[in-house]
Amino acid sequence: MTTLRLRPEDPADTGAIRRVLAAAFARPDVATPPEVRLVDELRGSDAWLPELAMVAEYGGEIVGYALLTRVQVRSDGSSRPALALGPVAVAPHRQRIGLGGAVVQAALEAATELGERLVVVLGDPAYYRRFGFDRADRLGLTSPWSGLGEPWQALVLPPSVSGEPAPPQGEVIFPPPWSKV
């Protein structure tokens, strides 16, 4: 029986993660997909949260990846922290067996355990709805991708303690590596 292991990435996983991202986002017109470069650049930034970079290891092989990194939500001259989900990738030979959903769920659970309150994503609404994501504009969130409508989504994570303030509303500011995607 092949076992699935979900865990934060280890520095030794970098090459395997790059291969998964390159295969999952491969395009004939691009040697290195922008998602590979995005992860490489985020690793060297203040947005990087190593405990929220999750891998799916299936049969001892890294075949899935979900990354949560720090973003800021600005409103009324102040900023509050939130997270951005992406990229999410599964090696083509292991797609359609639930590994993507498993690694995303593991990342969201880890964020909840750390007391995070808000996650944003740009992606397929039909896919991300299963995790509880909804249109970000309904939560008072804007970004450079707001004009895309339904693909600009957000998820409010459960509070770690009762009485915790509501999740932030305002403009979501992504770290500089995101501007290249």
Score class of each variant (00 low, 15 high):
L139M: 14
V121D: 09
T112V: 06
T142C: 02
A111Q: 13
V119T: 11
G132V: 11
L139E: 02
E109L: 14
F131K: 04
E116I: 08
L139T: 03
R117K: 15
R138K: 15
V120Q: 05
G132H: 06
A136Q: 04
R135P: 01
Y128S: 03
L108P: 06
F133Q: 09
Y128W: 01
L114T: 09
V119M: 10
L122W: 03
V121L: 06
V120R: 05
L108M: 13
Y127M: 07
G132K: 04
L122N: 08
T142Y: 01
G115M: 12
D137A: 13
P125Q: 03
R138S: 06
E113D: 14
G132N: 03
L118I: 10
R129S: 09
D137N: 11
P125Y: 01
R135E: 14
G123A: 11
L118W: 13
A110H: 10
E113L: 15
S146E: 09
A136V: 11
E116C: 11
G140I: 07
A136N: 04
L114N: 12
G132I: 12
L139Y: 06
T142W: 02
Y127W: 10
F131N: 09
R130I: 11
R117E: 15
P144L: 01
T112P: 05
Y127C: 07
G132L: 03
L122H: 03
L122C: 10
D124S: 08
F131Q: 04
G115L: 09
T142F: 01
W145P: 00
T112M: 07
L122V: 15
A126V: 06
S146H: 04
L118N: 06
D134Y: 01
G123S: 07
L141W: 03
S143R: 00
D124C: 04
L122S: 08
V119A: 10
T112A: 14
Y128V: 08
L114M: 15
R129T: 13
E116L: 05
D134F: 00
V121Y: 04
R117P: 01
Y128N: 08
L118R: 02
F133W: 03
D137S: 10
V120N: 04
P144K: 02
F133H: 08
L114D: 13
D137P: 00
G115Y: 03
R117G: 10
L108G: 13
R130G: 06
R135L: 01
V121Q: 10
G132P: 09
W145E: 08
L114G: 10
F131I: 07
L139D: 06
G115V: 09
R129C: 00
W145D: 13
A111F: 10
G132W: 08
E116D: 15
W145T: 02
L122T: 04
S143A: 15
G132A: 03
R129N: 10
